[in-house]
């Protein structure tokens, strides 16, 4: 029997904020759904996150951000992913992101934004359906 390649996800927490309840819950839910999850730990710079994505050869990146710094931090991560040629990695963002900021983030390269109250099930399904290069099923 062939084993399917597992989806590899980097869960990252950029900025100075330490509130990691959401990031850890999402990491565990993705793991429970059979994905391989690398959690960066707290206070990662955009550079550290982009380079971890490259080194770990991940299919998706989940960014948790609650501090209001998303408009500064997320576009920079997108830029770094592009410049190192990993723009096909699926980038999703969760946290306190007001409605009016979503369009800008998507334009910068974010595939989806999960606002407060999103279920882990919705996140798991989205990642499964949208990662590139990994057979679904």
């Amino acid at each position: 029997m062939m084993t399917e390649p597992r989806i590899r996800v980097l869960v990252a927490k950029p900025g100075l904020d330490g509130h990691d309840r959401g990031a850890k819950i999402v990491a565990r839910a993705l793991r429970d759904a059979g994905m391989e999850v690398i959690y960066t730990g707290l206070r990662q710079t955009p550079e550290q996150i982009a380079s971890a994505a490259l080194q770990e050869d991940v299919d998706a990146i989940g960014i948790s951000i609650l501090s209001g710094a998303h408009n500064t931090i997320i576009p920079r991560i997108c830029e770094l992913l592009r410049s190192q040629g990993t723009e096909d990695v699926l980038l999703v963002v969760g946290g306190i992101i007001p409605d009016e900021d979503i369009a800008g983030l998507k334009q910068a390269g974010v595939a989806e934004v999960f606002q407060p109250g999103a279920s882990t099930q919705a996140i798991v399904e989205f990642v499964r359906k949208n990662v590139k290069g990994v057979p679904t099923g």
Partner: peptide
């Protein structure tokens, strides 16, 4: 960190 530290970028006065 002071408000002019590079790691403070995007976070000054926010929370």
């Amino acid at each position: 960190y002071d408000s002019d530290h590079p790691l403070a970028e995007g976070e000054v006065g926010k929370c």
